[in-house]
Amino acid sequence: MVDLKDSEQHLRHVEKDVLIPKIMREKAKERCSGQVEDFTKCCKDTGILMVVKCQKENSALKECLTTYYNDPAFYEECKMEYLKEREKYRNTGIPTKKRLQKLPTSM
């Protein structure tokens, strides 16, 4: 099990400032999927004028994402997810991407 206090002392700069925020962005995009879809649709429908015509959708998307980025509980959730993945990697030596790939079947 991951001990929060112990793991906090061992987080490197790149983990705190790059890897955990990356998880936060991915999860926030999933949770704001409605706003992402609205903004994407608006951009596709308006083409070059998207900067002017999609301000409402862009603002809604930014507001949704910012809400998650500024939520300390959401940060802790993403940090715990990262720490679990890091622990699995340290135990197995296999990166997450490779663990999730299907193993080839023999013929």
Rank of each mutant, 00 (worst) to 15 (best):
V18W: 08
L4Q: 14
P104G: 00
V2S: 07
S106E: 15
D71T: 05
C32R: 08
K53T: 01
R86S: 06
N70L: 10
F39Y: 03
Y89L: 07
M107F: 09
V51E: 07
E87V: 08
T67Y: 14
E77S: 04
V2F: 09
I20W: 03
P104E: 06
V2M: 07
A60I: 01
K56C: 04
K27P: 02
V52W: 08
D45E: 10
L11V: 09
C42E: 07
T46S: 08
Q35I: 05
V36T: 03
R90H: 03
V14T: 01
D71C: 03
Y82I: 06
Y89V: 03
Y75C: 00
C32D: 09
T96H: 13
K5T: 11
K62E: 01
L49S: 14
I23S: 08
I23Q: 11
G93H: 11
E76H: 06
E85G: 15
P104L: 05
R86F: 06
L65K: 04
K29E: 14
C54R: 09
I20P: 00
G93Q: 14
D45A: 05
K79S: 03
C64A: 04
E81I: 12
C43E: 14
P104M: 04
P72D: 05
T96L: 15
E63T: 02
K27L: 13
A28S: 14
E87D: 15
T40M: 15
A28T: 08
K27A: 12
H13N: 11
K88D: 06
M1W: 12
E77H: 05
I48L: 13
T66W: 09
I23V: 12
T96P: 09
Y82M: 07
L103G: 07
E26I: 02
P21R: 07
M1Y: 12
E15P: 06
N58I: 04
E85S: 15
K22A: 15
C32G: 08
L61E: 01
I94G: 02
E76T: 06
K98H: 12
K56R: 01
E26A: 05
L103V: 10
K62D: 00
T105F: 09
T105S: 13
M1V: 14
H13F: 12
K88P: 07
V2L: 10
K44G: 06
K102L: 01
S33C: 10
S7K: 11
K88G: 02
R86T: 05
E30G: 00
L11Q: 05
S106C: 15
E63A: 05
E37C: 05
L11K: 04
N70M: 10
K41A: 15
L83W: 02
K41L: 12
M24R: 07
M80P: 06
V18H: 10
L83Q: 03
K102W: 01
L100P: 08
K62R: 04
S7H: 12
M107A: 10
V18L: 10
E77W: 05
A28H: 09
R12E: 14
T105M: 11
M107D: 10
I20A: 00
K27M: 14
G34A: 01
E8W: 11
K44R: 15
P104C: 03
D6H: 10
Q35G: 00
Y69T: 03
Q9W: 06
L4M: 13
E63Q: 05
F74D: 00
E85Y: 09
M24E: 07
V36D: 04
K29D: 13
